[in-house]
Design a protein around this nucleic acid. Structure first.
Lengths: 343, 343
DNA sequence: CCCGCAGTTTGATACGTTTCAGTACCGGCA
DNA sequence: TGCCGGTACTGAAACGTATCAAACTGCGGG
């Protein structure tokens, strides 16, 4: 398969390479007659512009990257959708990469996208990542942090107030008379996890008589939820928690499923359950799931807007950090009122 | 920010460009002393290799692309995970793109990835797409079709036997005594949808006394499911279907949720429900969902393997089309035995 | 009749990298 | 001493494109 470039097209159409290039990028500058000849040559040869050369010449690409820790978590998938949509409107393409919760793969993608000279990146990560991003930013690739607030005010970010979210969840459980609350979450090294726990602790501290226990899970997936639920079920009813606050909905759903279907523990009577993120599937789960909600769709949109602003010659002033207020969506799993309408 | 390339590094380290390049690609060929100097220069200048130039020179990239119609459908997300994992093992990076069920965006991404000279593409699409892919393949970018079987035997593909899957689903409902089955699915122009319907029709034809009705939805999302469920609920109990076969789990979950929570229709007593894909959330839904399952994880893995084989100098002989056998996973929503174990 | 101008077209150059064909040096062997 | 083989390094060419300055075309006005 002979490589076909602009040169071959030019030869076949009997014009110069420059004219072909003009035809591709500024068709108006080329006479109708040659336009026709060039178009025919392109089709005949099956010419496709070589992006590498294009980018090399231009020095930039028309794409942005979105690095997610776990695409199969609908929370990140929904964000991806907002990103995609908003970026398309701005004429940008989006490369999505899945780091699979692996720091190593995350680094690899960061490096790769920087080498690709993407216009900018949106990074959702569990790790404290800001330091690593700093050097990339300094070299000229703007980055918006997604899901965790930038520590430095210069670091743009889109996040939710997780301390507040954790507070709302625990407060709600306490108000319904729960006394032994378990916080099921991942490594406390993860900022989001630590913040949600902090919020929950604050709520506990305001109450009398309520204890908070922390149960660790490694990956915060459905499978992790199932596993920890079995551990909990093994304990005697008196020592078991009477409420669980799971650090995300995946965990909560895994817990719910195992508790109800496998362990025959009643939710919310025996154990009340609150999740986090309010993914779409929570509403349709065995027992509709109470959850802390942030506006996912807007998450992606806001992130892209922040990035585009950063890309502008003269970034608009104002805070670069968007923080959404979490809302508690009460459903059956926590023993609250049933069927609260969805936004 | 001064652009920093291999040349600047070479100058600072007082070696030639060639040596720097060697250092990056074949460190062994460079003496320890210069290695040290070059490394220091790279760090000092913050050099990052320009992928455009790299690729231009090499003529290829080390990435493959996966185009999905809907990332927020866990079915495609799970595939993405398998793809990512298998590709990483082969030293390839994966660009995921979300076409958002839009043919236009799909085309845009196809074109863009071809221009990017990715090694190959995995394309999951709802449209009959093979013809468009043909020209791309002829120009040298191999493509593996995901989720729909290639019509031409030359077109590699990974799919499930959807006719069989549809048959299994309908047969199951018939065996449980259902008489008025509704097929809820998208445009019949979509191959997967048409095949599943065909399978269902076959099962109906074998039975006496059973009717099949087709209810159309545009997008096959949870929201579509909710909408169609309201339409169904509006009909009198006698004219309503007593069983629904939804063309995917998203639809099924939307239907389930609305039927049970909002319309107070009992599932499976009044209406039995079977979905398709067996996404993880089906097991944890209000009423655990009976579904037709294909091994998702292996889907992505098989696709990458097929692609890698295609990439090889001498592709191994044998069929290029992997077809998985669907399995019916029976849970409560269809009135079958409860709690069938998960593979 | 010539000049200037707008509209087209051309040819050359640069983008940043890898690689190929050498050059320089060194130690060992005939 | 002269030659060989190997290692470490260098310089230049090439990858495919966009763009800039220059050249060529008609054409209308002075």
């Amino acid at each position: 398969m002979a490589r076909v470039g602009i040169r071959e097209v030019a030869t076949l159409a009997e014009v110069s390479m420059g004219t072909v290039s003009h035809y591709i990028n500024h068709p108006a500058r080329v006479s109708p007659e040659k336009r026709e000849r060039i178009q025919r040559a392109i089709e005949q040869l099956g010419f496709v512009r070589n992006n590498a050369a294009y980018q090399l010449r231009l020095g930039r690409s028309a794409a942005i990257a979105y690095i997610a820790p776990d695409v199969s978590n609908p929370f990140f998938a929904t964000i991806a959708e907002g990103v995609e949509q908003q970026a398309a409107a701005a004429g940008l393409s989006v490369f999505i990469a899945n780091s699979n919760r692996s720091r190593q793969r995350e680094d690899a993608y960061l490096e790769m996208f920087e080498a690709h000279r993407v216009q900018g990146m949106l990074v959702a990560s569990h790790d404290p990542i800001e330091e690593r991003l700093e050097s990339i930013r300094q070299r000229g690739t703007p980055i918006v942090l997604v899901g965790q607030r930038g520590a430095s005010p210069d670091q743009p970010s889109v996040s939710i107030d997780d301390v507040r979210g954790g507070y709302l969840a625990a407060k709600h459980l306490i108000e319904h008379g729960r006394k032994r609350i378990a916080f099921v979450g991942g490594p406390l090294g993860i900022r989001q996890v630590a913040d949600r726990l902090e919020g929950a602790s604050n709520a506990i501290r305001e109450a009398d008589d309520v204890t908070l226990e922390v149960l660790n899970v490694p990956d915060r997936t459905i499978v992790d939820g199932r596993d920890i639920a079995r551990v909990i079920a093994r304990r005697s009813p008196e020592t078991r928690p009477d409420a669980i606050f799971a650090v995300n909905d995946l965990l909560a759903l895994g817990i719910l499923q195992t508790l109800v279907n496998e362990q025959s523990i009643e939710v919310p009577r025996e154990i009340a359950l609150v999740g986090y993120d309010d993914i779409e599937f929570g509403e349709a789960s065995i027992i509709p799931l109470t959850s802390v909600r942030a506006p996912h769709e807007e998450f992606g949109i806001a992130a892209v807007e922040l990035l585009i602003n950063e890309l502008a010659e003269t970034p608009a002033a104002g805070s670069k950090q968007v923080v959404f207020e979490p809302i508690l969506v009460v459903r059956e799993s926590s023993g609250g009122t049933i069927g609260a309408p969805r936004a």
